[in-house]
Design a protein around this nucleic acid. Structure first.
Lengths: 645, 645
DNA sequence: GGGAATATTCCC
DNA sequence: GGGAATATTCCC
């Protein structure tokens, strides 16, 4: 357990202590099927030690400014990938003590240049990297920092398959093995998978079926999660990588149609499914387009500068547009993270709600699942256009329609007397999807073998949350299930009372509810945590209280329906600026519809205005196709922002 | 002064406070000769504040794990370049208070994706990045956080010249000006220059003549300095960049001749001289060799993958060999940083001295600069089969799924207290259909006129099932917000103590920190408030409780659902090996070569085991993929390391 | 030193 | 979504 395999890497940025007892083994074999078996303990939850958490004192030692710099390496190191975390270290405020304790001092094994092993405070296993050098992990032994809470002792074993297949991989691992592993090479995929297993489920998680994943609050996700796995905290960069690996955003059209500023993003790749490690190796990074037809190999063109010259590109790292800062704490990052294009910086997005929260995994179940044939690679012919049409249609159906329906159902559910929750509804939908959608045609891959649909349906498991809502006058349960999510702080505040149950059994525990906020103020804090816009997350429908009349329901529903929510909408989402709305977050969904009706699809683009306000919506006439045209705007001095697709 | 030009970016990692009053101006002009003028004050020495160094207390607030993660962005942000720091933020332990003080709230100006402006605690000027968007900086005004130590109050104005010349740069700068500036575009050069001005002179400095620079202790330099400017702490990566920009190592022969393992490295570039800002723009990054001879522009090669295939390269970020960890403090990095290839881990290098300092610019200027030509392209594909698949899918979605959904809705409707009838629901659905489904692509018909999608929605008619679900034991509303989902509590738990400050002013508040959790348990926590995501949207549902009870509702609906989700996968990271080397420092350079041989590369792979249960996996045999054959790796298990040149 | 792959950023 | 430039890593 103790040894961590990576030579490189080390400190993690995580401040909590995470225990990894298992270590990544590096496999020496060249191909994917690494022999390595790494046992990765600690499941779902992170094991964090709080006890040790306070490094504060430690910092003093710093002689220089650099002191706090985060270790870049760390980022990577943290979570490498499923099976391997490159290194576990401590983040910034690493606990020196801890470190000291460590036996470490790994002499850098092989690596020459890049990798350096340093005090692996908490050694994490690495996945084999492609290079040999890196292979050797000198692990410091397990550093089980104190494991504060109960959860701490999870152990997870990562499948070897997940490792990289790049060049050499040597497998040596302990624990159960997943042999099937086709060494999945890419670090990105490994990290992504790992992230889904480990990260805060409220920020990123698999859908119920395990066939796609959901990023619920891009802002927070970007701040809190991304840096743990990558050297950046930009949601856009994350999305770029997803695209490079063939992932598709699945809820895009829905939001566009609705002109909703959502913080919920769903991505799918045919071979990226929960538990399906063996498929991971199928996920390849797209190759750069070669200039010349032929050679992929390098040709040099010594001549010169042309390219490099300045102008065009920006400076990457420079700040230019990039950096967002994170505060030290996860706390408030005001404007930063790019997250959803549309919702930049606006915490309280008008539209923003988390309607989705309710969630139904829109597509979820819907099919995209398994199917099998992907189309990416295939080249054949056929009416490509037809494909585009169909693809677009499928998207429409899967995303918009279903999403809408689900939202409606969820909304209705909350109003049911019996207390049926949205969960049930979702569950049903999942079944439905399972049943009906098995044959997905979806995007990617071609032939899927039989995929396991069954797998898809993950059991929700048993969590029982009890909320005691203080409630509004209205009925009791009203609640709003899912929404809760959205529950704007305000509401939450109230909720404190609620006692939730969590089941520890679950991998993921949700905490959210747990939070207790002390302040009542809207402003303070935490506003929304949700990114959604805050406050009102999605509107919680709830709040909405359905109270009044009955129509409420109807009202809620439809566009027409506008009722309440509409109102909400009314608020402008435009205001990028400030605010939090009160409880807006309305059911965007519905509203959206209206809008949608009108036209065709719309894209919302926001224009951003600097100061103020802004927004803009817009629309794009009927789809054209995906990638195609892009007419880019060009040219005017202004730029429009575009949303990420 | 106050405005910082970059739209993106923000927090810095630097813990010390550095004040930048001037700001980088971004020049708008396309070419190098940016108009911007940035005055850069403060030469030689670093100004470091130690006084402030102890952020310790500040950290307390952190609620969650993330707390400490270093902001990747930060790295960049920190020091952008001479004239511009992209963003200044606070690093990890940002001082929240400070932030609050800040007026900031920069509305993110233009940037869409990546850049996010967040509370720029210490606004730094940005250089204009190449892109337009980035151009506009909303600078927060100067945020002079407390300047703890003496040094703290330095103000430096960076010469505009140093800024990037990329695309647009608008120059706005305060302070003394260095007009000569030819907007130097590259971030790297800017950072390098800035580093020389600011960083610890004992680690990196100009030679006496100001014509080359010296890195005296690669190990410490890598740990303490590099991360402040770059997203890594690998000396090799730094060297690679230097080489890409045409710098040459000048003391190489000296050491080689003497077979000395030195930590002193000297690099020179003809146009990189102290104070000669105008020359900086001449330093260009070498262009990648284009594959094909000719075109630098993009050519697409839809066909594919070739390039990307796997093998060869390693995974970058993964740990593989890479990561080194840094302790939080700059302090002692034991073995880490890669630094000089040759002398890894050996602090006390034999040769180590700064002999060279005196310097003689051996190579002086050589130039490799500019080259040009890019290569990339893309491909797309389509197929008839795809059409079939998609068609089927559409059919499925439109007919089955939707039909089912409608039925569900109708069913639910009957149960609503208010008496809403299914009619309404149907109506709503009809609208929905109308809106969303208009363009049907339907099955058979090839063209699919718009077929009436509306038709599709058959009203389930009036079936009213009333199910009263008994409910589960659980509570009424149970519902649970989404998040609930997964929050791993563990991590969070620990932090509770921390108190953070939030600034209400900001748009986004971070909540994370804010949360106060009552429970210690790992599991619980709140993690997110954000609702957006809700609580777990998707998943949560699951949690769903739904479990037992009531299923009635469910039962009615659909097919059985099997729940179960796989338990968490266990991970194990196998420990690859262990080994650490002792401190050899031998002239690695020399040595390295040697080793390389021995070692070989290793990959670590991990296998995952399922923990729990389930899962299914399945698999698809390898797809073949299109793109790459990937066979890369090849072939031997070992990799050799090499020394940097 | 530099080729090449992946990562990150910026832009359309 | 993706092209393209720079950044980082890995290797020769």
């Amino acid at each position: 357990m103790q040894s961590d395999s990576n030579s490189g890497s080390h400190m993690l940025l995580l401040h909590d202590d995470i225990h990894f007892q298992g270590h990544g083994a590096s496999s020496s074999s060249s191909n994917g099927s690494g022999s390595g078996q790494n046992a990765y303990h600690g499941h779902g939850g992170l094991v964090i030690d709080h006890s040790a958490s306070d490094p504060g004192p430690l910092y003093t030692a710093d002689p220089n400014n650099y002191y706090y710099y985060a270790d870049p390496q760390t980022f990577n190191a943290n979570v490498n990938s499923i099976g391997s975390f490159s290194s576990m270290g401590q983040p910034h405020h690493s606990t020196l003590p801890t470190q000291q304790q460590q036996p470490q001092q790994q002499p850098n094994s092989t690596k020459t240049s890049g990798a350096q092993t340093k005090r692996p405070i908490r050694p994490a296993p690495n996945m084999g990297s492609s290079s040999t050098a890196s292979g050797s992990n000198t692990g410091s032994s397990s550093i089980a920092v104190s494991a504060p809470s109960a959860a701490s002792s999870h152990v997870r074993t990562l499948p070897a398959s997940i490792t990289k297949n790049a060049s050499a991989s040597s497998g040596t691992v302990g624990g159960p093995t997943y042999t099937n592993a086709v060494a999945n090479q890419s670090a990105f995929i490994n990290k992504l998978y790992t992230m889904l297993e480990e990260a805060d489920q409220s920020l990123i998680s698999w859908d119920q079926t395990g066939t796609f994943f959901i990023v619920k609050n891009t802002t927070d996700f970007s701040k809190a999660v991304l840096p743990l796995y990558f050297k950046h905290n930009n949601f856009a960069s994350f999305v770029r990588q997803l695209n490079m690996y063939g992932f598709h955003k699945i809820n895009d059209s829905f939001f566009k149609l609705n002109n909703v500023c959502s913080e919920v993003w769903e991505f799918k790749h045919h071979d990226f499914r929960r538990g399906e490690f063996h498929l991971l190796s199928n996920i390849k990074r797209k190759a750069p387009k070669s200039t010349a037809a032929g050679g992929s190999s390098t040709t040099k063109n010594p001549s010169t500068n042309t390219t490099s010259n300045s102008s065009t590109r920006g400076s990457n790292y420079n700040n230019i547009g990039t950096t967002s800062n994170s505060n030290s704490a996860g706390i408030n990052p005001s404007g930063s993270v790019s997250s959803s294009p549309m919702c930049l910086l606006t915490p309280s997005l008008p539209g923003g709600g988390s309607m989705m929260n309710t969630k139904m995994e829109s597509y979820a179940d819907l099919g995209m699942l398994q199917t099998g044939a992907s189309f990416m690679g295939t080249a054949s012919v056929a009416s490509d256009e037809r494909v585009d049409e169909l693809t677009g249609r499928v998207y429409e159906l899967e995303s918009k329609v279903i999403t809408h329906v689900v939202a409606l159902l969820a909304n209705m559910a909350t109003r049911l007397p019996d207390g049926i929750g949205h969960e049930e509804i979702e569950l049903q939908l999942a079944k439905l999807a399972q049943v009906t959608l098995d044959a997905t045609v979806y995007p990617t891959t071609s032939s899927g073998t039989s995929s396991a649909s069954s797998a898809m349906y993950v059991a929700p498991a048993q969590q029982h949350y009890h909320q005691q809502q203080p409630q509004k006058q209205s009925t009791g349960p009203t609640i709003t299930s899912s929404n809760i999510n959205n529950i704007p702080a305000r509401s939450r505040t109230s909720d404190k009372n609620m006692t939730e149950k969590r089941d520890s059994s679950n991998n993921n525990n949700n905490n959210q509810d747990a939070e207790q906020e002390t302040d009542a103020d809207a402003d303070d804090d935490i506003p929304d945590d949700d990114g959604c816009g805050g406050g009102g997350d999605s509107d919680s429908i709830g709040d909405t209280a359905i109270d009044d009349g009955d129509d409420a329901f109807l009202k809620q529903l439809g566009p027409a329906i506008s009722v309440s929510s509409a109102t909400v909408l009314g608020k402008r989402r435009a205001s990028l600026g400030s605010g939090q709305a009160g409880g807006e977050c309305i059911a965007n969904t519905y509203k959206s519809t209206e809008s949608s009706t009108a036209g065709g699809k719309r894209d919302t683009k926001k224009t951003k205005q600097l100061g103020g306000t802004t927004t803009v919506s817009i629309l794009t006439p009927p789809i054209g196709n995906p990638r195609s045209a892009s007419a880019r705007d060009g040219k005017d001095g202004k730029r429009h922002k575009r949303s990420m697709h």
